[in-house]
Amino acid sequence: MKSIEGGFPSYAKFEPTAPACDYYDPDHFQKELDKIWFKTWLLAGREEEIPHSGDYKTVQIAHENFIVTRGSDGKVNSYYNVCRHRGSRLCTEESGHFNRGRIICPYHSWMYSGDTGELTKAPNISDEDEGFDKSEHSLVSIKTETWDGFIWINADPDAPSLAESFNLPESWSIYENYQMHRLKIGKTGTYNVKANWKILMDNAEECYHCGTIHPELSRATPPMQPRQWVDEEVPETKVIKHVGSMGLNSGFERVNVDGEAYRPVFPGLTEEEERKITYMHIFPHSYICMASDYVFIAAIFPVKADESVVKGYWLFDPDVMEKKDCYIEDAVEFWDVTCQEDWAACALAQEGNQSRAYKDGGTLTPIDWRVANFKKYVQSELEKED
């Protein structure tokens, strides 16, 4: 790690934001879905959410819904949540269990294999019927991979592998000490935000606002201190971004509201890692916050052009979680209040973006350099040829 005084690199500059309509226009939103959301690897959750064969969860992205399920061989598979008969949604709950791994449509009882997505039974239709071949009516699958305990999905059948897209394992090497594959969920949260998904990611890309709206975060990790950036030799990709780390304030032992230590630090962390929180962003929609005794993850999903849902995960050491006197509310409270402060600010930005006075957009300052980089990422993906 190395320190950069001032909080932004030398190439940062003043430049315009994206046009305001990019944050509320339905046609532009649909283009983003087609060009970005259904073309890249997305964080679908944690493996422990579906620990057993037949367990499933669903992921909603705008009008699309996906089933993520664990097969009898332990492999995680994902499918569009759509019956091939008449288009009925198959799963109406956010999570559940398929008895014997069978996915059954609630409308006409067509039955599919959770292992392969193959149609195994269509009531009152004989295998001998001409003009009907069950092999041609399997569920539409999407690419699914796991890494470090996370589940990733990609709706693009021609997409490169997760390893290629994320430059694994090299890009992840500096986070190995956190052993995220063994951490367990202590708490989850869902936040409904009246703002475009890009506004939420723009907010995550800078700490210019931290001193204004985040008194709790600012007390724990003062935003104006020199930030620890990641050395240039640690590889990034188009979507993996190393945001660096922030040190704890004097008198604070942990990244929480009161600075008190309620749990031991993760085994294997260095002394330097024990005194900071490290951030990684994964375009287009998620970020991971690695403190010394917990990890917080936020995954943003678009609902409509002016509405988003955020899924939050708090991860802890499993040995700590097994203790009867385990206390995790300090970490939960800290990021819950920080998130709510963020989403309230994002909702205000959404309202302003829709004003005639802001139709040409605004200004990004040098401190907003990561927001500028995210803007360029979005623009470059939208400009790609189909």
Rank of each mutant, 00 (worst) to 15 (best):
M1A: 08
A20K: 10
Y23E: 10
Y24C: 07
F29E: 12
E47A: 03
H52I: 05
S53M: 06
T58V: 03
F66I: 10
V68K: 08
K75Q: 15
V76R: 03
V82A: 02
V82N: 00
S88H: 01
S109M: 10
K121D: 15
V140Q: 12
T144S: 11
T146I: 04
D156Q: 00
D156R: 02
D156C: 02
P157Y: 06
P160F: 02
W172C: 01
M180G: 05
I185C: 06
K198T: 06
D202W: 12
D202K: 10
E206K: 07
T212F: 13
H214A: 11
S218C: 11
M224Y: 13
W229I: 11
P235I: 00
V239N: 14
H242N: 05
S250G: 05
R254Q: 10
R254F: 10
R254L: 03
R263S: 13
P264E: 14
Y279G: 08
I282K: 05
Y287W: 15
M290W: 05
M290A: 12
I297Y: 06
A299L: 05
F301W: 15
E307T: 05
S308N: 12
Y313S: 03
V320R: 02
C326Q: 01
D330K: 05
F334Q: 00
W335M: 01
D336A: 04
V337K: 09
C339S: 14
A345D: 13
S355A: 11
W369F: 15
A372C: 02
Y377V: 07
V378S: 08
V378W: 08
E385M: 01
